[in-house]
Nucleic acid binder design. Sequence first.
DNA 1: GAGCGCCATCTTCCATGCAAGCTGGAATAC
DNA 2: GTATTCCAGCTTGCATGGAAGATGGCGCTC
Lengths: 251, 251
Amino acid sequence: MVRARPTGTEPVGPAHKAPQDESPSGEWVEKRTSLVDDAYAAMRANIRDATFAPGYQASEQEIALRLGMSRTPVHEAAIRLQEDGLVRVLPRKGILILALAPDDMREIYDVIIAIEGRAAELVAALPEAERLAAAQDLDALTTAMEEAQGRDDLPAWGEADGAFHAAMIAHARNRRMSRIVQTVNDQSHRARMLTLNLRRNLEASVAEHRTIAQAIRAGDPGPALDAARRHRLRARDELLPLLASYGLKHL
Amino acid sequence: MVRARPTGTEPVGPAHKAPQDESPSGEWVEKRTSLVDDAYAAMRANIRDATFAPGYQASEQEIALRLGMSRTPVHEAAIRLQEDGLVRVLPRKGILILALAPDDMREIYDVIIAIEGRAAELVAALPEAERLAAAQDLDALTTAMEEAQGRDDLPAWGEADGAFHAAMIAHARNRRMSRIVQTVNDQSHRARMLTLNLRRNLEASVAEHRTIAQAIRAGDPGPALDAARRHRLRARDELLPLLASYGLKHL
DNA sequence: GAGCGCCATCTTCCATGCAAGCTGGAATAC
DNA sequence: GTATTCCAGCTTGCATGGAAGATGGCGCTC
């Protein structure tokens, strides 16, 4: 079903994905996506890839025009993005794309250290079958990192690294933790893209990932928590000074 | 400044506080509040005090009428509440006040254990002056708990207990952690009100609070983290079975 | 030239209208 | 009596217009 596009302009947002759902029978049924969801996804993607650079101030009207919809869904999507900490809606001034200050990175790291540590602990405390499945997933992703490293394929390394951490959270089976991590990941996405090119100790990350996976496999919650914490603490201590030395006031 | 009330009905919502404030000195502190903010605050308060009971399904039109505004601000406030996990907006059906399942409480406890543990660790790692100030705050609030306990004043005990945990997070100086805790506290507010009357080990809580404050005072991050975690773990193990035994499917 | 005030313009905020989806129940067929 | 169809009334989704706040520039005053 095609929705009327009264303004005549075609939607242009890069993230115009059609959310779908799997029906019980296994067929793919189209799920009705609202314009608000479209606007949210498009703006979020634009912020992630810096099409909307931090500090940029856009008017809702302008974005609406670009996405081929009216101001209303853009406005409502902006509210959601503000709740996510990605933009600020300035009354009667427009939508401001938020920049990340060094202090924000400190905050984000502490949130990650807390949540991911607990997640590792929880995964290590799972019944053996699930635990082993999780450890296997994590080891596979760590192997993917090693292979990427062997090919000097930094983007692939970053992706596998992200997938490792995402998998660990997912195995902890806590939707609130997943959401929290997702939110701070969105906020720090641009910083991660930048720091990926500055990293030196790729081997250390791989080794720490192995340690985490091993503790989970062994069913040792304490060591798993400790290994996950240490991993993130080291990454923070390695990357925050780099960011600072680049004098990044906004990011 | 008087805002037009086009519907003619007077605002009747219990939480519709005057959007203006006059300071004691007579100056105008004028708090600019939008109708969206009013609607958000009113609905949030109504959910907290169970005026909108879980499972209740309201139409935006009805709430708008009650608050003396049109559907738009109510709709936008509903989006924010949905983002907070307090309601679900069902397309073309209305706003559903979410209930809390036991599994939600498990998730919330794990988030709190993670965040509060890290927060305690951070506070204990502060420079001495701030650390001591924090410990003093925490001790004062713990004393307030003891006094309330002496008077058999359970509500006051609960309030002081909440203030203790809020103070610890505040002293950690991490806005994202504050927001996360605020969000899950909103979600679990009704459950806490209920369990307050079921608790037995009030003394244990007080003792654990003292231990946490002491570790912070001494500047021992590790023990602070450990004490905070243990405190929440014990509370969880005490309360979750109680909730389960009450057969609370929704809350 | 410097400072001040006014106003045109741009922006969001909010109310409202219209369209379309969902639901329950009445009416009909069997 | 039971199953089915259809429709009226309810709901939100979205577009749009009017109102009012913010801002920057222009002209005026001194």
